[in-house]
Design a binder for these strands. Structure first.
Ligand SMILES: NC(=O)c1ccc[n+]([C@@H]2O[C@H](COP(=O)([O-])OP(=O)(O)OC[C@H]3O[C@@H](n4cnc5c(N)ncnc54)[C@H](O)[C@@H]3O)[C@@H](O)[C@H]2O)c1
Ligand SMILES: NC(=O)c1ccc[n+]([C@@H]2O[C@H](COP(=O)([O-])OP(=O)(O)OC[C@H]3O[C@@H](n4cnc5c(N)ncnc54)[C@H](O)[C@@H]3O)[C@@H](O)[C@H]2O)c1
Lengths: 252, 252
DNA sequence: CCATCTTTGTGCACGCGTTCACAAAGACAT
DNA sequence: ATGTCTTTGTGAACGCGTGCACAAAGATGG
């Protein structure tokens, strides 16, 4: 197959499980809120509730970072905020480029939640010549021609792709060639990247489809013997249609 | 704890594993692309490559749906599109309301990827009286006062929250009270919902922080004996600061 | 009709993640 | 100092998800 590397093999980084890493930002958010209310310490039970996880899980997660708690008391909020921030690499700030300044890209550019969490939008890049120079979120949009130079000049290692799906792989390739090693992809496509490059994707169509699945299941259970568990009649009739016996519905 | 139910206990729905459900939309997307190119059949190997997963995993996933393949040949593309669509509940279309028509909410409203996948934006809702009546994506924004009526009138069961974090729980409560049973939450907060209500969240700050973690790790490995694996000196010095010995960095 | 070749469907083993449950650590009161 | 009480940190068991590897199914050609 000509398809390159696609999903990293869960490179258990320095012993911290991937699942734990994914929860650290959650804890950090909850801790930051406590910090702002000047709460000095917090128990695993309280913090777990605030983060929406099991308390045993939280304690085990923290145990991977070291023993930062005090038995009988809990965790020092400020100290833990710092430890998690350091572990996540948020004590430095990360320049980020956003490629594809359309509906979504512009919304991202305007989003304040970046800067407040250690990320700095270094540049906005779009292929549309008509957009070049136009200010979005108080920052001029730059043309794709300069992509390599922008990334190099600013030492950017994280890129966000918000272009149409058709352009995503091509943009991805250029980003990687220019030195980007982490990509957040909003386009509904599977990106192929070489080893050493991390890709995370956000696809809300997928999220909605998962919700729809459960929604349908709920409806089916409620209806019980309404029409018999959704549509088993179709499922029962299992043999592939000779040519065009597939029902006319065909979404997507 | 006063905190209500927060995460569903992975209700293994009719034997289909949650992990499989989460991949079905991925397969569907790849299959739809093949369908548009009029490819009649596809092998598990090819489809897996297109979807960015392992072929064994794909076959196992499909085995939960039934035996829809033909040995020696592969899967009938059209037929599989239909089966997966049906399984995901996409043969009906789902009315969706978006609450909070700011930067992000407007981008979502303008997004074409909804309709093409069986979802229909039934209404846009915002609390700002100045926005009421204003057209966004060719549809007038409605005021929060009418939230309950809108949901009831349109039989909406899926809601998208794109309000600021502070308003999210309150909006969530109203949505649930009005009959919504599935929520896609973009606000960076943990939502408490009663049993029977599904919540999925999209938080790009979290995604970026996960990328930053791996990015830092890569940098640390490259630098090797540069300053000694990132910052172990700080970690070594483990005792909680009496008061304010936490370094000044403190992000988030 | 038989042989060959391709590709599915799945049994099985393994590793990761989750959760329970408890011993040990330490705070705090007496 | 001693006892009590709270809460951490973790060993161990369990369940889910993943991927290997292969037998069985069926297509295809002779
Ligand atoms: N808008 C949403 O809410 C939403 C939701 C989910 C996913 N998405 C996905 O995000 C992506 C962007 O969505 P959108 O609604 O902002 O689309 P859009 O059409 O509004 O914006 C796309 C932008 O990308 C630019 N672009 C095109 N090709 C480019 C290239 N090669 N290099 C650089 N820039 C290029 C275009 O000029 C345009 O400005 C799409 O893939 C879409 O499927 C969007
Ligand atoms: N913009 C982004 O790219 C982005 C990215 C990630 C997360 N988010 C999150 O998404 C949410 C929205 O972001 P945004 O940039 O669109 O913010 P925004 O301020 O542009 O929009 C918020 C909108 O919600 C409306 N609103 C406020 N309270 C409401 C209520 N009680 N009921 C109904 N509507 C209400 C406001 O009138 C406003 O129109 C925020 O929670 C933000 O953290 C945004």
């Amino acid at each position: 197959m000509a398809t390159g590397r696609t999903h990293r093999p869960a490179t258990r980084s320095r012993g911290i499980p991937e699942a734990t890493v994914a929860r650290l930002p959650l804890y950090l958010r909850a801790l930051t809120a406590l910090s702002e209310r000047s709460v000095p310490t917090v128990s695993s039970e309280e913090l777990a509730a605030a983060a929406g996880v099991n308390s045993a899980k939280l304690r085990k997660d923290f145990s991977y970072l070291g023993s930062y708690g005090t038995r009988g008391v809990g965790y020092d909020v400020e100290y833990l905020v710092y430890q998690i921030s350091r572990e996540l690499g948020l004590t430095q700030d990360w320049p980020v480029v956003i490629v594809g300044i359309g509906n979504l890209g512009a919304a991202l550019a305007n989003y304040g939640g970046f800067a407040s969490r250690g990320f700095r939008v270094a540049a906005l890049i779009d292929a549309d010549p008509a957009m070049a120079g136009k200010p979005v979120a108080g920052m001029p949009v730059q043309h794709t021609d300069d992509l390599e130079r922008i990334i190099s000049d600013n030492g950017v290692s994280i890129g966000v792709i918000a272009t149409p799906a058709g352009a995503a792989q091509q943009v991805c390739d250029r980003l990687v060639a220019a030195g980007i090693t982490s990509i957040l992809n909003f386009a509904p496509t599977v990106l192929s990247v070489p080893d050493g490059v991390d890709v995370r994707k956000v696809d809300l169509s997928i999220e909605l489809q998962i919700l729809a699945f459960h929604e349908q299941r709920k409806a089916g259970e409620d209806a019980a013997a309404d029409d018999g568990t959704a549509a088993p009649a179709v499922a029962k009739d299992h043999r592939k249609g000779p040519d065009g016996d597939v029902p006319a519905v065909m979404p997507a």
